[in-house]
Amino acid sequence: MTMAHPMNVFDVAGRAMSAQLLRLNTTASNLANAGGVAGSEAEAYRSMKPVFRTSFDKASGLATVDVQNVVTAGPAPTKRHDPSHPLADADGNVFESAVDETRELVDMLETARHYQNNVEVMQAAKSLILDTLKLGK
């Protein structure tokens, strides 16, 4: 992504916060669909993961982070034989989404920490800039 003006510290922290928020959204989707059942392997939910990429701004020498894309990752849905299930296919099988809930929860905590760090960076930068504006007063 190219920007019209040179990147500043607010762009850096702000875009990193957006990226972390997107990561939190995928984690929420993954956890919400944990144990979800579908009638075929193709329909079953697979966990989503964002792919982060550094976005370097040559003019200012700063680097922030962008979400390149969101991919489906993790193990394939597990097949379970349950002929009485309303969603069972012709062979009597259902497919359960294989979301690793422990991993998702760890991811959620890490995301929240990274988000907080960026908020603190932004607050520190803001107060320093405001102090600079008051120079000589």
Partner: peptide
């Protein structure tokens, strides 16, 4: 001020593989 931006970039990329 430059160093502030550089360290902010590092913190922003704390979860970017290969940074």
């Amino acid at each position: 001020s430059q160093r502030l931006g550089l360290l902010a970039s590092n913190i922003a990329n704390a979860a970017t593989p290969g940074y």
